[in-house]
Design a protein around this nucleic acid. Structure first.
Length: 272
DNA sequence: GACTAGACATCTCTTACATCA
DNA sequence: CATGATGTAAGAGATGTCTAG
């Protein structure tokens, strides 16, 4: 089915959806319980609307108009909506659209602003459920004197905003986690260096077997390795281990912070 | 039962417009 | 008043799911 057709049939489809079988409803049930649909965390701030509380003038005709739009073929959805809007939308919406109708070409689309009351009710419903089934959508649209498509779009955009907000929160949490891991990494490296550069014990350490027999724990893995500890130095910039080879390569007049090191076998990275 | 096309809902990206600093 | 930033309604395409054939 072409996208254009979907648009033409959309509102009508919503109305027709009321008579569809259980398949559609079960789908809605799944959507409502979907973990992807996040709980609302945003508060919409609508600008003051100099207007126009919704009136009942258009109420009652919404569904019928939606169905009637089925017969409008080859017309852009926007135009269909304009026709419907004359009767089915709030006075504010009608006023907004009336502006669009003034310039006949229809190439410019006027921005519709929902009233405070409409936004508030939509927000309330969103807090209850972040998705609506067709029945609820039509009912809410009727209640708000809006087209079902408008309610649908509002929920769509609202979900997108919620998701965006949640993504930002997640991103911030990850950032903090990353910072704490970096700090932990630095701390462990400092500990490691302290152990590696510690002065040798006055006596030769006992054998592992003797240690075990005496109840002394074996030295950590890294202390048993044959490391060229004496050749390592600390990169002043990133606090990583660096060697004389790297230091020799660096220009003598270059600030140390900019001459980065080769890294120890533990770090495996040349990047700071 | 597997497959396919159509219908539909939703998501994502984008655009256009309104509002405000 | 002009302008850029921001918020948001809506358009368009992509995608997933369900159903009927």
């Amino acid at each position: 089915m072409a996208q254009e057709d979907v648009h033409h049939l959309d509102d009508a489809g919503l109305a027709l959806g009321l008579s569809l079988g259980s398949g559609r409803l079960s789908r809605e049930a799944r959507l409502l319980s979907s973990p992807r649909l996040l709980e609302p965390s945003l508060t919409l701030s609508m600008p003051d609307e100099a207007t126009a509380t919704a009136t009942a003038s258009g109420a009652g005709g919404g569904a019928a108009h939606s169905v009637s739009s089925l017969s409008v073929a080859g017309v852009k959805r926007e135009h269909v909506d304009d026709v419907e809007g004359e009767r089915a939308s709030s006075t504010a919406a009608v006023a907004a659209r009336a502006g669009a109708e003034d310039d006949d070409d229809g190439s410019t689309r006027k921005k519709l602003r929902l009233t405070k009351e409409q936004s508030a009710l939509l927000e309330d419903r969103f807090k209850e459920h972040s998705a609506l089934n067709p029945k609820q959508k039509v009912a809410l649209a009727k209640q708000l004197n809006l087209r079902p498509r408008q309610v649908e779009v509002w929920f769509q955009n609202r979900r997108a905003r919620t998701k965006l907000k949640q993504t930002e929160v997640d991103c911030e949490l990850l950032k903090r986690h990353c910072e704490s891991l970096t700090e932990e990494n630095r701390r462990l490296q400092r500990e490691l260096r302290a152990l590696m550069f510690a002065p040798p014990l006055p006596q030769a350490p006992p054998s592992s077997a003797a240690q075990a027999a005496a109840g002394v724990p074996a030295p950590p893995f890294y202390m048993q390795m044959q490391l060229p500890a004496a050749t390592l130095s600390l990169c002043p910039s990133c606090e990583r281990l660096a060697g004389p080879a790297a230091a020799a390569k660096a220009e003598p007049d270059r600030p140390k912070a900019a001459t980065h090191h080769f890294c120890s076998p533990f770090t495996h990275s040349a990047a700071c």
